[in-house]
Design a protein around this nucleic acid. Sequence first.
DNA 1: GATGAATGAGACTTCATTCAT
DNA 2: CATGAATGAAGTCTCATTCAT
Lengths: 204, 204, 204, 204
Amino acid sequence: MDVKPRKSPRQARAKATVDAIIEGTIQVLLDEGYESFTTARVAERAGVSVGTLYQYYPNKAALAVAVVDRCCEEFLIAFENALDERRCTTLDDCIRALVDFAFVSHHVTPERHRCVLELAPRLGVADRTEVVRKTAVKVLESTLRRHADEIAPEIDMTVAATMIETTMEALAHRAVMTDPAQTQNDSLAKEATRLITLYLFTGK
Amino acid sequence: MDVKPRKSPRQARAKATVDAIIEGTIQVLLDEGYESFTTARVAERAGVSVGTLYQYYPNKAALAVAVVDRCCEEFLIAFENALDERRCTTLDDCIRALVDFAFVSHHVTPERHRCVLELAPRLGVADRTEVVRKTAVKVLESTLRRHADEIAPEIDMTVAATMIETTMEALAHRAVMTDPAQTQNDSLAKEATRLITLYLFTGK
Amino acid sequence: MDVKPRKSPRQARAKATVDAIIEGTIQVLLDEGYESFTTARVAERAGVSVGTLYQYYPNKAALAVAVVDRCCEEFLIAFENALDERRCTTLDDCIRALVDFAFVSHHVTPERHRCVLELAPRLGVADRTEVVRKTAVKVLESTLRRHADEIAPEIDMTVAATMIETTMEALAHRAVMTDPAQTQNDSLAKEATRLITLYLFTGK
Amino acid sequence: MDVKPRKSPRQARAKATVDAIIEGTIQVLLDEGYESFTTARVAERAGVSVGTLYQYYPNKAALAVAVVDRCCEEFLIAFENALDERRCTTLDDCIRALVDFAFVSHHVTPERHRCVLELAPRLGVADRTEVVRKTAVKVLESTLRRHADEIAPEIDMTVAATMIETTMEALAHRAVMTDPAQTQNDSLAKEATRLITLYLFTGK
DNA sequence: GATGAATGAGACTTCATTCAT
DNA sequence: CATGAATGAAGTCTCATTCAT
């Protein structure tokens, strides 16, 4: 199954069309569920005809992949931005930024996140999300290395980055699931901060 | 949509039929993917006719729910057994048992786990897995309370149980994904032990 | 593209169903033209549902192939029967039988013939009709050899069989096209007899 | 369905465009098959846009008709030229020219021939090819009449012309199909010559 | 109680054709 | 005049479900 887009929009009008298609897909998935993810429904929601949709994507799977890809890009840009070294000078800053990103900022678009999480296993695109995860781990690792002097010396940076990525992802996800309105996740966020802090600073 | 089984098998032979159907479904999902999860394929794999399948389950969703339920039951029994107080006398024992369960024992059936994880969001059965999670958290919480004297006093047992359940689940899942053969997850398991230990024992 | 039937009908009811599908296809092609050859139309005409059609044939092409195959079988049986040696004792008998078959008997089902002729090039089944042609040539050749003593000695039997098959097929086809009602093809039939007779009997 | 061209090209540039469209259609049909005969594909192959194509032909059928017409014209011109009385003085000359045309010259463009043969029944244009056939028969008939004194007196010129046209067409086609490379059709060509010669010269 | 042939709604996808730029 | 993005009717095919045997 070919999942590459058929062509990239060149004109501004076409770019807007493609955007509408992608956003329409996300809307359908979030508002109406996977069962409603049909090409006809997406086209309708995007305000274009099915034919137009198929001019840009060769099949439904390709459309789903495009959505996953777009969400992944957005995520990585925001993630890297959150941990930008101009923002976090100390390791404490970084941990705060990370928790903040996961629990506070990130929850601004938790739905897109959920959308991808439910979509990815259904396609052959576990690899695509895996790339995101690996990139995130790399970003975390280099952040840790920048602050190596603040970290317990026996800690393996790569393993630590994996640990942090995995646990933070899970905790943030859990927070969203438990309390979608995000009104009172402070306790979970605080505990997450404590967990990571202890893990990084405590010598064995 | 009615998801209750139509009737429970009474005779041994009928019980075997139902078993074959449930196991057939799991096989199809794991070996051939969600796309192949059709009632016809399941019946074929189970060695029965579609008609028979429909004698026990009123529709496809009910079948999926039955699979999820069965996997959840199995999981909870094993989990409760692992943390049984006759097995773990100290908190350290418990932590060891937990990590062991998640990384070592649990990985014996990681596929059934994955099967449910991918299936649940696709049905309306997120609630059913949520019940499992909550039960697991309860089990963990009571385990913690049994050892309250060993734990840093300012810790909220409920929150801690949630933290542990969430992170362990994530780390075990990650371990399986990263290294399906489970040949060398020692480092992740060790780090998980360290993470939980620090979290529970270190005073704020 | 797979053009094999999905399964052969075993029960009598299923056999009737398959028959209805094949005949329905031929009806549609002849009465309504190739443009109307849609799976939905065929199913309707056959008095079954599309689903039933697809239980026996994996796709439209397979259905078309089945039609071609059936028509070819019928043709060959009739052809071999017409030239059966118990019927034609002399070479003149054979020629008469051949012309008769092509112009008179054969025109009873000229429509099925036309149906295949128009269908075959559109599929990859030129080979299938080629087999028919080759078989017909073989039958003709053995007929000629049975009467070798009556034939001009310098004639190559294989070539002659090919010549006869080709010209008779064309002349019969032409007769049908020119005068579908077959009211007055005597002249063409007579000329065909004369053509073949001269060709076989006249020494160079 | 209107199959007339929308307008005829007046300027040389426009004529080139129309040529490109017609040739592009033939290319597509021969190289990629009838399934690929779509207006988009033709336009692409012709190096023009769909819009341009629709400026000259009101619909797909009109385009197909134009192709058939062009091929028919080419054929008739070549055919008439082959039998031109300045070329063939005796009837033997004519027969030779005819066989030559069918087997030797004609096979230079057997593909265009095939293209039309497969196209015509699919459109309502059997009549158009019928016109070609009738014209060819007329040409043959007048050729025969020019040599009436050489022909067996009881022969009906019209019927004979039909017989010859039909058999030669079939034999040439068969030769192309059997041996596309045309390396060794001598035997078939020789036999064809013999067939026609016997037919015309032998008194009843 | 089991079977599996039959059903048909509905999903995906193509492609002839138009029209604003 | 040429372009090619957009349209949407129509066709192919699947699969959950029923019911006569």
